[in-house]
């Protein structure tokens, strides 16, 4: 049985991409295997762990729950793209300084999720940060350091206006 395919055109990390993909291929598999953006990871393929989180048209989605063909015409951003644009450079720096990751496998998804809190920063409690990150599983850190890094970033942005 040859696989059914479709041609899709989309923007990935600012670049226009046109590819023919199997219709059953998940967005994250497309990004990883076809385009080489391996920063998005697969942890559960079930929409629970958040390791595959990417941005599609400015919304954070689970790359394992969306098909590549559904992203036809969309603007897709991965952690590599956010890294390039510098949008979360302060968050990344704080993650490094606070050691807010160990194995690093959850980190791209964690950053993309945390970045939502930075778009229009407003004062948030640690509990609110924890709640916001509760769709992203980290087995290594126990979360404390991640909450610290996010909190520091938000507070610094608020202070610096």
């Amino acid at each position: 049985m040859s696989e059914a395919t479709l041609e899709i055109s989309l923007t990935v990390n600012g670049e226009q991409v046109t590819k023919t993909v199997p219709v059953r291929q998940h967005l994250v598999d497309f990004l990883r295997n076809e385009l080489g953006f391996t920063g998005s990871h697969l942890g559960c393929e079930h929409g629970v762990c958040g390791a595959c989180s990417v941005r599609v048209d400015d919304a954070v989605v689970r790359g394992c729950l969306m098909l590549a063909v559904q992203a036809d015409g969309a603007k897709v951003e991965t952690v590599e793209g956010l890294n390039e644009t510098g949008e979360i450079a302060d968050l990344q720096k704080n993650f490094v300084e606070r050691n807010a990751m160990q194995c690093g496998y959850c980190t791209p998804g964690m950053l993309i999720t945390a970045a939502e809190l930075l778009r229009e920063p407003k004062p948030v409690s640690r509990e609110e940060i924890r709640e916001h990150l509760s769709g992203n599983f980290c087995r290594c850190t126990g979360y404390h350091a991640i909450v610290d890094a996010v909190e520091t970033t938000i507070n610094t942005r608020l202070e610096e206006g």
Binding site: T38, G39, V79, F95, M101, G104, T107
Partner: peptide, 18 residues
């Protein structure tokens, strides 16, 4: 701080499946 952390936050980790 760890060099590997700088790589992780850039999405440049290199795991077996990568």
């Amino acid at each position: 701080s760890r060099d590997a952390a700088k790589r992780a936050v850039a999405g440049r980790g290199r795991y077996t499946d990568d």
